[in-house]
């Protein structure tokens, strides 16, 4: 009986706190949806798999895979404050082959004008080290994360770029870049998580309200993986996975995103 009483008190207290929180949220301006649309690019053109592009080193590259994780999204308001998307609904896998995955629609975003976006490129360390119960949806190693997870070295692949190039003489001309590493669970190791911060240009803004559904068009340029600050040659390094060199590549792709334009329909 005592135990039951305790549980009921706990539920009651929880419900009270919950109802108070929900009242506070209702006081804010009317929420609405906002979509982040990721367009994969190869320099000045849309990225098409099977088509050849040149990297900075002048090598011809034909891509077959370009996948990445986006997590922990924060939206920056014009007044400098932030709206943080609830952590549990803030993990997305952009799969180069799956067009639907390129659109991230955030629901119940508080109304207001948003001028910038922050997110983590990769799966943050807390989630990377989480228990099995949290590995659902895009984080399920046997589901959507298949091919984006190292079973032998518990961790997600944050960015995966694969393709072929006549410049590569090994493994049938293929190149593979599987970049991950969240800093290590019990011993420190490489951390290739990147905090991305994007600002809208030309005083564009995404105006969220119950009646409007703005869409932010973000470019992700795959050729940035191969340049600045470290020029990456597929001939010299056709395969980079969990290795020290991966940090050079992560430093390259840290600036592959940009906001191209915002629709306010």
């Amino acid at each position: 009986m005592k135990n039951l009483k305790f549980i009921l008190v706990a539920i009651l207290a929880f419900a009270t706190v919950f109802s108070i929180t929900s009242c506070e949220e209702e006081d804010e301006s009317t929420p609405g949806p906002l979509t982040l649309h990721f367009e994969n690019r190869a320099g000045s053109s849309t990225l098409n798999f099977g088509q050849a592009y040149n990297n900075e080193a002048g090598e011809s590259l034909t891509f077959s895979t370009f996948n990445y994780y986006i997590s922990n999204i924060k939206l920056k308001k014009a007044d400098g404050t932030y709206y943080t998307v609830p952590k549990d609904s803030s993990y997305f896998l952009i799969d180069g082959e799956d067009n639907e995955s390129h659109e991230i629609t955030l629901n119940d975003v508080p109304g207001g004008d948003y001028v910038g976006f922050e997110f983590v490129l990769g799966v943050d360390s807390l989630k990377s080290a989480s228990d099995i119960g949290q590995r659902t949806g895009v984080l399920d190693p046997a589901g959507a994360a298949q091919g984006m997870y190292w079973m032998w070295n518990s961790g997600y692949i944050f960015v995966k770029v694969e393709g072929t190039s006549p410049a590569v003489t090994e493994v049938d001309g293929h190149f593979f870049y599987h970049i991950g590493g969240y800093g290590g669970y019990s011993s420190p190791t490489i951390n290739n998580l990147k905090n991305i911060s994007l600002e809208a240009h030309n005083s564009e803004k995404a105006s969220v309200s119950k009646d409007a559904h703005p869409e932010v068009h973000i470019y992700a340029d795959v050729l940035e993986v191969f340049k600045s600050p470290n020029s990456l040659s597929v001939a010299q390094s056709p395969v980079v996975m969990f290795a020290p060199q991966s940090t050079d590549i992560a430093n390259n792709y840290a600036d592959m995103f940009s906001i191209n334009h915002i629709h306010n329909d």
């Binding site: 099995i132 190693p141 190292w150 518990s154 019990s186």
Partner: peptide
């Protein structure tokens, strides 16, 4: 020590 939780052990062998 590549896997840090028992629950993720079987996947590695599979």
């Amino acid at each position: 020590g590549g896997v840090h939780t028992l629950d993720l052990v079987p996947f590695n062998a599979i």
